[in-house]
């Protein structure tokens, strides 16, 4: 028996919109800890890891660990039927082949339920090692989104470099080149607008902008984004989900032969 009641249902809507273009089908793993998901895109270049902790739900009942295979496009179709202010409850039975989404309007005058078919998904679970990153950049999520969008009109790849000067985003294309440097900017009264750069050593990595632009679909989930870089690891782009958990996108770098 599974019953998860999320008062801020819009969070689930946003989460699915943020990952559905990257991942087609995924297993949602439900345990006492919370609802989690780990999935790669079809070309295995990017990986998304989601955690919604049990404490973030108003009611959380998960009698035993359960893995539910869902088509994210179908899930999106159903969740789009929920209002932004609706409370969403996810209900399932052990061993059942469907899941039910119940939507309640804030004043309880409209209650809907949508039953969705589950699917069997053969997915590999990858071990993500704890890592010491060379540099961690925290910046406004809207700024990061703007940079990725702007640069993708000029080039296909971006070099992200962190030095003492700041974080630099560089691209090159047929029409020319572009460099955007963001310096550390600790705005005390507006911490969400701060850019904070922690650097253990300088690092420079190349990534496909197409994927970074896809990750920025999570922008509305969090005012800030954290970019963790190490020269020998995929970059981690993390959006925290208020009081509940996170979406982390891992992107494998482009490497010289």
């Amino acid at each position: 028996m599974l019953e998860l009641r999320l008062v801020q249902g819009s969070l689930l809507k946003k989460v699915i919109e943020a990952i559905k273009d990257l991942v087609t089908d995924a297993n949602f793993d439900c345990s006492a800890t919370g609802l989690s998901l780990q999935a790669m895109d079809s070309s295995h270049v990017a990986l998304v890891a989601l955690l919604l902790r049990s404490e973030g739900f108003e009611h959380y009942r998960c009698d035993r660990n359960i893995s539910m295979g869902m088509n994210l496009n179908n899930m999106s179709k159903m969740l789009k039927c929920a209002g932004n202010d609706d409370i969403i409850t996810i209900k399932g039975d052990d061993g059942g082949d469907t899941i039910t989404f119940m939507f309640e309007s804030p004043n309880q005058d409209k209650i809907s339920d949508f039953e969705m078919k589950l699917m069997d998904i053969d997915s590999e679970h990858l071990g993500i090692p704890e890592a010491e990153y060379h540099a961690i950049v925290k910046m406004p999520s809207s700024e990061f989104s703007r940079i990725c969008k702007d640069l993708s009109s000029i080039g296909d790849t971006v070099v992200i470099s962190v030095t003492k000067e700041g974080v630099k985003f560089t691209t090159r294309g047929d029409i020319g080149t572009a460099n955007i440097v963001c310096r550390q900017n600790k705005t005390i009264d507006k911490p969400d607008e701060a850019t904070i750069i922690e650097m253990n050593e300088p690092v420079s990595l190349t990534f496909a902008l197409r994927y970074l632009n896809s990750f920025t679909k999570a922008t509305s989930l969090s005012e800030s984004v954290t970019i963790s870089l190490s020269s020998d690891l995929p970059v981690v782009i993390e959006y925290k989900i208020a009081d509940m958990g996170y979406i982390r996108f891992y992107l494998a770098p482009k490497i010289e032969d």
């Binding site: 070309s43 295995h44 990858l126 020998d232 995929p234 494998a252 770098p253 490497i255 032969d257």
Partner: peptide, 14 residues
């Protein structure tokens, strides 16, 4: 130019 690597080059199956 640089070649795209994959996640599985860095993270192993559990």
């Amino acid at each position: 130019g640089p070649k795209q690597s994959t996640i599985t080059k860095f993270f192993g199956k559990v």
